[in-house]
Structure formats: structure tokens, C-alpha cells
Nucleic acid binder design. Structure first.
Lengths: 217, 217
DNA sequence: ATATTTTTAGACATACTTGTCCAAATCGTC
DNA sequence: GACGATTTGGACAAGTATGTCTAAAAATAT
């Protein structure tokens, strides 16, 4: 009885290993070719499994897309949450620490593979399958903005910032951080860490010129 | 001899009328369905012509995509140029006039049909056909930024702004103007003029807090 | 009114994709 | 070594797409 668990685990491990492999490959192919252009044979080949296995695991092609989107949004949300936890709540050098935070945000959430995939899938399939992204739409960016706004509001309370509307400031911060990366992202280029840091520096400088206060005692 | 021109014009008129109709329909379908998912029968139906006519005019499906992209980028560039000409070079109330300029920019270039199409086509087919957008990549946003930067530099010279780097400021201005519209645009929602004006107001307020100077004499 | 050109509708061959079915092979466990 | 389940490769039918071809129809210029 006790060892009965072992085989289940082993089977499941191989199972989930292939599952992940398939989801990874499917994400890549869906992202590259779009839903209509995605070829299940190609997904199977890139995942290193047979086509039948793909159908065994995820059934329909549409079902597979759903699974891919769920996987990616979950990872993205986790990354955002994790990164938000590193916000400089009690800064010493606010400018430098905000720059580092912005770099982390871009590296972990916006510019990585998942971020690129989600952005692209959203734009290509968002209108065709609105339900697909409904969950992310509500729990994704809105929650991020709110969380960031709360951090900024606290910085305002402790005298570091002078804010009218923390929500607007949060959105503007994110927009500024991406200002110099728009082209690279829209063209799918990979951005070096130098570019990322330069963009973050420009963004934070502007942000603090607008909302910064002389350092509190 | 003189009337020999007339028939050519007439033929060409009908010809170009259908050409436009086809390009319009193709733009819509390519944008909705992606290149792989776009159905030439559907394009023909939406254009109100027969499928054969589509092939007569543009040959290949790929060729049709090229024509569509060329058409849209040209219109976009024209719209940007036209809107840039309305920049408040000699402002009286800089904040109000920048807000109006930002609204025009969004209405004429970013949020209209062409802007949405270009953005979507770029994201879906940009990596597959890099040459397709090479022209726009060089002559599109870069030129816009440079032109806008020049305007800002002049405002700085005349004492309205305090700028380190006009190029950075131009990119940041555009980023701020889009900050509140990101979600709507990525989800393909249509934005009301109120939303647009509110977004522009927030953007300009932030921009001027960062770079504005007390009004010159 | 006629002649020339474009447009149309439909048939057509070709090719590709999805999703299913099935027997053989593979893998891990007992 | 044998068992059970999963995986595999390939065959298969059905549907759909592209691009070509043809003869008839329509529109336009002379």
C-alpha cells in the first residue's frame, strides 16, 4: 500500500515532464506562427514527442492553446508578485534603488520569454478568444498597478515623493520604464542588460523630476 | 490623342478603386486572422470582388500582404507628419496646447484603424518578414522621435522647458501619452475621446512637472 | 454599335492540416 | 523475465486553402 504511491509518482513525473515539454514547444510555435499557422506536427517535433502524445495530453488544438495561456499567465503573475516584493520600501538612495527595481521588473516580467509570449498571444488571439485572457485581464495588470501604487503612496507618506494620484503615477512609472524599449519589444529584438539599465535610468530620472522630493531627514 | 488620356484615367480609376477596396479588406482580414489564418475568399468577399480579381491585382497572398503593409505605413507616416505640423511651437498656454497636441497624436496616429493594424501586423508578422517593415522601422518612429525632439529642443531654447536630452524627452512624452491606453490598445478596445483627453492630461501634467519651467516673459 | 479589356463564377488539381485509429515498440515496475 | 501503461509511427478520412484555368458576362472606349 505504501509503495503504491511510488509508481504513481514516477508515472506522473514522466507524464508532467512531457506535459511541460509540450507546453513549452506549443508556446513557442503559437507565438511564432499564430494559432492558425501553428502546426501540431511541428509542436510535437519541437517537444520531442509524437503527435499522438500531444493529443493524449491536451486533446484539442484549442485546448492546447488554453493550457499554454494558463501556464504563461500563472508564471507571469508569479514573477510580478516576486519582483514587487523587492520594491525599495525603505530606501537609502531612492534613485539608485528605483533603477534597480525597474531593471528587475523588466528582466523578470516584461522582457523575458514569458512576457514576450503573453504580449504576442494577447495581441494575436485576444480578440478571437476574449475569455482566454479574461482572468489575466482582471488579476494581472490591474493588480500590479494597484500594488505598485500602494508602494508609491507609502513613499509619499514617508516624504520621498509628492504625488497627486498614486495610481496614475504607477502607470506612468511603468510606461516610462518601457519608453526606450518599445521598438525593441515590438520587433522582438532581445535587449541587453545595458540597454535595460540605461532605459531604467532615464525613466527614474524623469519620474523623480516629476514626483521626487528632496530627501527626507 | 488628347482624349486618349481619358480612357486610361477611367480604366485606372475603376482599377484603383478595386485595388483600394481589396487592400482595405485584406488589411482587415490579415489583422483579424493573421497571415496564415487569412482566407483569400473572405478577403474577396469583404472587398466585394471575385477571388480571381484579387489574384489579378496582387498576385500572391504574400504579395498582397506586402502591398497592405506598404499602404498602411505610408498612410501612417503621412498622418504623423501632418500631426507633427500642429505642434505648439509658439505656445501661450503650453499645458493646454500640449494636451491638445497629444490628443491629436493619439487620434490620428496611434489609436485609429491604421495604427491598430500596423501594430498588430508588426507584432504578428514582424519576425517572419523582417524586410517588410524595415522601411518603416528606419523612417517611421525614428523620424517621429527626432522631429518631436527638435520641437522640444526649441521650446527649451525659448525658455519653456528645461531638458537634458530632447531625444529622451520625446520618447518619454510619447510613452506617457500612451501610459493609460496600454490595456485598451492591447485588448483592441476602442477608446473614447474622453479617455483619450484624460490620458493626455495626465501625461502632460507629469511631463511638465519633470521638464516644465515657469512661463517665460 | 462594336471591340477590347476587365471581371466574374465555377471547376479543378494540389497540397496541407486536423483529429482518429491501430498495432508495434518502449519504458518502468513487480 | 513478465506485466501494464504509455508512447510511437504511420495510415487514414475529411475538410479546407491556394493558385490556375476557362468560358461567359459586364463595362468601357472608340
Amino acid at each position: 500500500m505504501t509503495p503504491a504511491i511510488a509508481p504513481d509518482i514516477a508515472v506522473t513525473r514522466s507524464h508532467t515532464a512531457k506535459r511541460h515539454s509540450i507546453l513549452d514547444a506549443a508556446a513557442g510555435v503559437f507565438c511564432r506562427e499564430g494559432f492558425a499557422g501553428a502546426n501540431i506536427d511541428l509542436i510535437a517535433a519541437e517537444a520531442g514527442v509524437s503527435r499522438q502524445t500531444v493529443y493524449n495530453h491536451h486533446g484539442d488544438k484549442e485546448n492546447l492553446l488554453v493550457a499554454v495561456v494558463r501556464e504563461i499567465t500563472e508564471r507571469i503573475n508569479a514573477g510580478v508578485f516576486e519582483t514587487l516584493a523587492t520594491f525599495p520600501d525603505k530606501p537609502v538612495d531612492l534613485e539608485a534603488e528605483l533603477v534597480e527595481f525597474a531593471v528587475r521588473l523588466n528582466q523578470n516580467c516584461m522582457c523575458n520569454r514569458d512576457g514576450k509570449f503573453l504580449r504576442k498571444l494577447l495581441q494575436t488571439e485576444g480578440e478571437r478568444y476574449p475569455d482566454l485572457f479574461a482572468g489575466w485581464r482582471e488579476h494581472g495588470p490591474a493588480k500590479t498597478w494597484a500594488a505598485l501604487a500602494a508602494r508609491f503612496a507609502r513613499l509619499a507618506l514617508s516624504g520621498w515623493l509628492d504625488l497627486d494620484d498614486p495610481d496614475v503615477a504607477a502607470r506612468q512609472f511603468l510606461a516610462l520604464v518601457n519608453a526606450d524599449l518599445q521598438m525593441a519589444m515590438i520587433f522582438g529584438d532581445t535587449v541587453s542588460e545595458e540597454q535595460l539599465r540605461a532605459a531604467a535610468t532615464n525613466a527614474v530620472r524623469c519620474f523623480l523630476r516629476a514626483y521626487g522630493k528632496p530627501r527626507p531627514a
